[in-house]
């Protein structure tokens, strides 16, 4: 066993364990915490694969910003205790069936040898560094990048407008 494989197996165990914990936990706050652990493990995966920039962004955006908002909503609404029976109970057996089906299909393809996994080569030095990503974003992908930023700005303005329904009635400060 190579060190890479040991690291991969350990990380995979944590990631899958966290995902299962998230699904099985009866308390929404603990579910959110398991999801954070899962995101953090994904970040370590990116680090191992030689993509530190993506890893840091993963932690900042997903594990940091988005999950804090999730936790806020769960705590402020007092929605942490899930009902034992919900209106989507019928989905559970279907989900288990579909999941097992997918697992069986992928497993069969791998075991029967119809599909082989490609080998991963180590990326060259400097690949995926902030400098390279910045250069790519501002030259090759400039238009999509700018469109995304305008979209984000519009979403931000929209969020503010929606939450300020009572603005016209309010006294000017």
């Amino acid at each position: 066993m190579t060190p890479d494989l040991i690291v991969f197996l350990a990380l995979g165990l944590v990631a899958v364990g966290a995902a299962v914990g998230m699904l099985l936990s009866r308390n929404a706050v603990y579910s959110a915490l398991f999801l954070i652990l899962n995101f953090a493990t994904m970040a370590v995966f990116y680090l191992v694969l030689g993509a530190p920039f993506i890893a840091m962004v993963q932690v900042t955006v997903y594990a940091g910003a988005i999950m804090v908002l999730f936790l806020f909503v769960i705590m402020l609404l007092g929605a942490e205790h899930l009902e034992r029976h919900t209106s989507v109970d019928w989905q559970k057996p279907v989900a288990v069936l579909l999941g097992l089906g997918l697992l069986g299909m992928v497993g069969y393809l791998l075991v029967s040898g119809q599909v082989t996994l490609g080998t991963i080569t180590t990326p060259e030095q400097g690949y995926g560094s902030p400098l390279e990503i910045g250069r790519a974003l501002f030259t090759e992908y400039l238009l999509p990048f700018e469109i995304t930023s305008v979209l984000l700005l519009a979403a931000m303005v929209g969020a503010i407008v929606i939450t300020r329904r009572d603005a016209p009635n309010r006294k000017k400060r």
Partner: peptide, 25 residues
Amino acid sequence: DLNVGVLFLLSVASVSVYGIVLAGW
């Protein structure tokens, strides 16, 4: 010498909120 050093600072700072919010809840 980490080439994403400043991003590392930001990502750790963004995670450090959890202890406090959990303690409160």
